[in-house]
């Protein structure tokens, strides 16, 4: 197992280098001179040249990359052009909100998706099966930001308990306060704010999980040992939950892991809809303001989190499924 982890970690290095080159090039090859844009059309050539020298834009591209990469490794993401604040400070402030949103979304998706899939599989061929699977297919086809808009207009506008925008305290921080100080107010505020954005991202994943749970469970239910379990006279729920579901869970766990990464992608737009103070909204705002250091730092950080999550999923999958390790 250790050698597998080391191999996977070693594979991360060239990938991270590739990511950094791509992010660097994306910004540096974009048309238009960021310095001229910053200074405005009236700026003199001398001013532009001066600022180019200060930012190091007059150096050869590879030199700029190495300097930028070296700074990144030291945690120096540059300074925001518009806000004048270190980008690393802005980015690291926003990460917890994004991770929390993705995590709660996955939680909602799992809590709703697995029972729905089991229900459809158990009721196979009945009207309930068709209804659940059509609902799941619609869920898969729905853009999460549109669902977010629907939740805003249909629920948040009418239910005072669920606010429309923003974030008020962390759910996990609130949970800690509840456990240590017996004060549930922070947790309650956190939960009130996170429900709608998390639902809007979680529903599509719920649909994917439900479809997979159904097909995975149906495949297992067709096996001989399930027939044996039935023949032994075991209760139906014991056969389904103890014998079948356990074996059907492996592909579901994989999808949950893979989807956690995808949640981060979905969160980018949903954060904008709900004014959620996460990394996605930071990047989108930076794009509209053409604040390149933030775009670069934000996108890089998002890709690093995404690859790290995928790596952890791979490792945990190898832990439960030994065949992967010896591949």
């Amino acid at each position: 197992m250790l050698s597998y982890i080391i191999r996977r970690l070693a594979e991360m290095v060239p990938l991270l280098v590739g990511i950094s080159i791509l992010v660097f090039l994306l910004v540096h090859l974009s048309p238009g001179d960021p310095v001229r844009m910053l200074l405005g059309e009236d700026a003199t050539e001398e001013d532009v040249a001066n600022l180019n020298r200060i930012y190091g834009f007059d150096r050869p591209l590879h030199e700029q990359y190495f300097r930028w990469a070296k700074n990144m490794l030291r945690g120096d993401f540059g300074t925001s052009i518009r806000q004048g604040v270190p980008v690393s400070q802005l980015v690291f402030q926003r990460i917890p909100a994004t991770l929390e949103l993705a995590f709660v979304s996955v939680l909602i998706a799992v809590i709703l998706g697995i029972p729905l899939g089991i229900f459809a599989a158990v009721k196979r061929g009945t009207i309930w099966d068709y209804i659940s699977m059509i609902a799941a297919l619609i869920g898969v086809s729905m853009p999460s930001f549109w669902l977010g808009l629907l939740l805003l207009s249909r629920i948040a506008l009418h239910v005072d308990f669920l606010p429309m925008f923003g974030r008020d305290g962390s759910v996990f921080g609130g949970l800690w306060i509840l456990l240590t100080k017996w004060d549930g107010s922070v947790l309650l505020d956190g939960v009130r704010h996170i429900i709608l954005p998390a639902l809007s991202i979680g529903i599509s994943m719920m649909a994917i999980i439900a479809r997979l749970t159904r097909s995975s469970l149906l495949e297992i239910l067709g096996n001989d040992y399930i027939r044996t379990a039935h023949a032994k006279g075991l209760a139906r729920y014991v056969v389904i939950f103890k014998h079948a579901l356990r074996n059907a869970l492996l592909p579901i766990i994989t999808i949950v892991g893979i989807q956690f990464g995808a949640m981060l992608g979905g969160a980018i737009v949903t954060e904008t809809v709900f004014a959620w103070p996460g990394l996605g909204r930071l990047i989108i705002n930076a794009i509209s303001q053409r604040d390149f250091p933030i775009i670069q730092g934000g996108v890089l950080m998002m890709a690093v989190i995404f690859t790290t999550v995928n790596l952890l999923v791979d490792i945990s999958y190898a832990l439960v499924n030994p065949r992967i390790r010896y591949d």
Binding site: I19, L26, S30, G265, G266, V269, M302, A303, F306
Partner: peptide, 15 residues
């Protein structure tokens, strides 16, 4: 290695 929506956004933001 990038969430696909993020990469698409980054490419369009750049171009």
């Amino acid at each position: 290695a990038f969430p696909s929506v993020l990469l698409a956004i980054a490419i369009v933001a750049s171009l």
